[in-house]
Every structure is written in structure tokens, then in C-alpha cells.
Amino acid sequence: MERNVRSLFAIETDIDVGDVEAIVGGSLFGAFQANVILHIGDLEALRLLGATVGVPTLVGGAGMLFVYGLLLAIPFLAFVSGSINAFVTRVIMLSRNSTLLQKVLVPLLNVSALGVTLFALGQIYGLLVGSVFFGVLVQLWLAFIGGPSALPAFGLVSLFAWMTYGGMMGLVYGIAMEQ
């Protein structure tokens, strides 16, 4: 059984149990921060997330944000695990070509090259999640089940919350991978 379980993570893919632990921790931390932002700035977005499972309350929405945060971390991990070295190399090359970028990026890269790269990548991923998942898929699902429209809650605050989710997930994952 042990070999079977290991083969799921370590042999057939580049992902091992440490990666899974890091991404679970990172995604929960990111979802926690997104929850704080949405509770301060966009309660309607939370109620709509709860409405996707028939619980249009703040507690339901906050709980679903953690669940969706965990689920949406899977594609990020799958993408990052195969291409992170290329991204880090690209960021290092970028910092060599521009003096301004060199001043900004080199001190950060010295602290944590993976953390900085994955933080930036995570923010892009968060923007994508906010636009495609929340702006389109949640909207379609709510229309399908006859729930309220999600479009009124699709604004800068919810996008910022999803970007924070992605950025924090990437940062925690990157730092954990460097340890």
C-alpha cells in the first residue's frame, strides 16, 4: 500500500508529500487572508460563495472559501511543479537585464528566490481564479441552480482578495520548498 500511495505522488509525477503539505498550508493561509479582505470589503461575494452550496450566509461563504481555496490549489501545484525552475531562471535573467529590476529583485531573490517567484506567479493565478472561477463559473453555476447573480459582487475587492489568496499560497509554498 505504501508503494502505491508513494507512486501517486513521488514516482509518476514530480509532486511528493512535502509539496502537498506546503500547498495545503499555503492555500489555507491564502484563503484565510482572502476571507479577512472579503469580510471587510465585500460581504456579498461571501454570501454568493455560500449560495453555490445552498448556504447563502457569511459562515457558509467563509467555509466554502476555504474549501474552494484547497481545491483551486491543485491546478496551481500541478502547473508549478513542472515549470518552476524555468520561471525562477526567467526571473533571474530579467533581473540581470535591467538595472532597475536588478535593484528591486536581487535583494528579494537573495531572501527567497522561490518565494518571490511563486508569490508573483500566485498573484497572476489569483487574478485568473477571480476572473474565470468567480466571474464566470460561479455565475454560471448560480444561474444553473437558480441562485442569485454573482455579477454585482464581481469587483475590485473580490479580485484583490483572490489575488491575495494566490500570492500568499505561492509565497508560503515557495518558502516551504526552500526550507
Binding site: F29, F32, N35, V36
Partner: peptide
């Protein structure tokens, strides 16, 4: 640090 963060955010995020 996580424990303190969660405790202090619990007033804003009741699910915590």
C-alpha cells in the same frame, strides 16, 4: 503567530 492571527481575526471572520 498563526494562532494569534486567527484569534485576532475571529471577530472579523466568525467562522474561525
Amino acid at each position: 503567530v498563526l494562532g494569534i492571527l486567527v484569534n485576532m481575526s475571529a471577530m472579523i471572520v466568525p467562522v474561525l
